[in-house]
């Protein structure tokens, strides 16, 4: 067996892969948070709950309507994204003129209510969601066995993150978004319907969270707390990457997942806290985050 730093190779690579998977979820979730924060100036604490709703939505589509995994990968983000649009239209849009804190409180409250409702209806022990048949099994990579579904998750996350980055940085829609982030009134005075753009941005960020939720459903059990488990780390990722930075949230998300994975190998006791230790170090040395622009 190959040994690396006194650690068996398969163990090391296994943890690296696990880290990469967690990192994929961090990246997708913090990306949505970054887009929403940039455009709406809202710290969306409901993000984890909406991620969880994405997972539940795919479970419901399967168990109530017989709609399988792959259609759910498209449908659940659309359904939950539409739900996000309703939230933005009816509640969040009332807070734009107020302090950040109100948006934070509202979305935090929403998260508690949504999670409470799901706990009431489905309990908190978790519901199983099977890996689709074609993605079961594992592939021998030579140095380790990789479960196919895990590879699929990393691939999907990378594609979605890249696509989101490309839309924002390389298209005219993205240019309008970036401009509205900088100076919304002027962009509106050019003839752009900025309120509608904001609504769609929120819907898009939520759809990303729901997409991540569907990907997560077969890996983690579908349960009302699955969002909360992730979201604490995701907020640390956002702080480390730099508030509102698109590239920052993607790179930091994947990187911190890997850091976490490696810590599990070399010093397991610290694996739950390492992300927060990094956050403290970054806040002390570079308060605007790794990719954040100076205020």
């Amino acid at each position: 067996m190959i040994m690396i730093f006194g650690i068996p190779g398969p163990l090391l690579f296994g943890q690296l892969l696990l880290g990469l998977i967690n990192g994929a979820f961090y990246a997708m979730l913090s990306l949505g948070l970054a887009v929403i924060f940039g455009m709406l100036n809202i710290i969306n604490f409901a993000h984890g709950a909406l991620f969880m709703m994405g997972a539940f939505c795919s479970w419901m589509l399967l168990n109530y309507l017989g709609i399988g995994y792959f259609p759910a990968l498209i449908l659940a983000p659309l359904i939950i994204g539409a739900f996000g649009i309703v939230l933005e239209k009816t509640l969040i849009s009332r807070l734009y003129k107020l302090d950040h804190l109100y948006g934070l409180l509202l979305t935090f409250g929403l998260a508690l209510v949504i999670e409470g409702l799901f706990r009431n209806a489905y309990g908190s022990s978790g519901l199983p969601y099977r890996i689709p048949q074609v993605l079961t099994g594992a592939t021998d990579l030579g140095f380790m066995f990789m479960p196919n579904y895990r590879g699929w998750v990393v691939l999907c996350a990378a594609v979605v993150c890249f696509a989101t980055w490309a839309i924002i940085e390389k298209t005219s829609l993205g240019a309008t978004l970036r401009a509205a982030t900088e100076n919304a009134p002027l962009v509106q005075a050019f003839g752009v319907n900025v309120p509608r753009l904001i609504t769609l941005t929120y819907g898009g960020g939520i759809a990303l969270a729901a997409f991540a939720g569907v990907l997560a459903a077969p890996i983690y059990s579908v349960n009302p707390n699955m969002g909360t488990n992730f979201i604490n780390t995701v907020f640390a990722v956002v702080v480390i990457g730099g508030m509102g930075s698109i590239l920052g949230s993607i790179v930091t998300g994947f990187a911190l997942g890997v850091v976490e994975g490696l810590t599990k190998v070399f010093y397991p006791q610290a694996s739950a806290t390492v992300v927060f230790v990094v956050m403290v170090i970054i806040l002390l040395t570079r308060p605007r985050g790794l990719f954040g622009k100076a205020a």
Binding site: Q188, F190, V192
Partner: peptide, 8 residues
Amino acid sequence: KMPNQIAR
């Protein structure tokens, strides 16, 4: 009218 309508 809203600014975007005025621009339009």
